[in-house]
Simulated scan of single mutants.
Amino acid sequence: MTDRKGSLEDRLKRLDAELAERRGKEEAGTAAEERASESRKGYAVAMKLSSEFVAAVIVGALLGYLLDHFAGTGPWGMIILLLLGFCAGVLNVMRAAGLVASPHPVDRLAGRDPGGRDGTGKTDGA
């Protein structure tokens, strides 16, 4: 009887060791998958931000070219609108990254800045 009891205890210890080993491997695999997922999310955000910036510059250059072509303004339309496209691209990237908050629609319609001031320089309560 004791031999059987000892055999069961040995098998139980081996089973516990195997389960612990498998759990460790699964946890390592889960952690690796989480890191890969974060990496993919970062890559997606980088692609989004870069495409927004490039699109704004290209649109500005295209509009400047069309203005120069139809109005005959020389290179000035393209230069000015290319710079405006660059500025719009930088602003879009900063907004998407959360560095610049977009104004609240109510504040934009009322002509107020988000700091609570109206156009006269007085606060709302005064």
Rank of each mutant, 00 (worst) to 15 (best):
T2E: 12
D3H: 03
R4E: 10
K5S: 14
K5C: 04
K5L: 08
L8R: 12
D10H: 10
R11F: 07
L12R: 15
K13E: 12
K13H: 07
R14Y: 03
L15R: 11
A17Y: 04
E18T: 10
E18F: 08
L19N: 10
A20N: 13
A20H: 08
G24T: 15
E26K: 10
E26N: 11
E26W: 12
E27D: 14
A28G: 09
A28W: 04
A28F: 01
G29Y: 05
T30Q: 14
E33M: 11
S37W: 14
E38G: 03
E38T: 13
E38I: 14
G42Q: 12
G42I: 03
A44G: 09
V45H: 14
A46Q: 12
A46C: 09
K48G: 02
K48I: 07
L49I: 09
E52W: 09
E52F: 11
E52D: 09
F53H: 02
F53T: 00
V54T: 11
V54M: 15
A56K: 04
I58E: 06
I58Q: 11
A61I: 08
L63K: 07
L66Q: 06
L66W: 01
L66T: 07
H69M: 06
F70Y: 12
G72P: 03
G72H: 09
T73F: 14
T73Q: 06
G74I: 01
P75M: 11
P75V: 15
M78P: 00
M78R: 08
M78V: 05
M78T: 04
L81S: 00
L82N: 02
L82T: 06
L83A: 04
L83S: 03
C87V: 15
L91D: 06
L91F: 06
M94V: 09
M94K: 04
R95M: 09
R95E: 14
A97C: 02
L99E: 04
L99H: 08
V100G: 02
S102H: 08
S102W: 08
S102M: 04
P103H: 03
P103L: 05
P103W: 09
P103A: 08
H104T: 05
H104C: 01
P105M: 03
D107A: 08
L109K: 08
A110G: 04
D113N: 10
G116S: 02
G116W: 02
D118V: 01
D118C: 00
G119Q: 14
G119T: 11
T120L: 02
T120D: 07
G121L: 03
G121P: 03
K122G: 10
K122Y: 13
K122L: 15
D124V: 13
A126V: 13
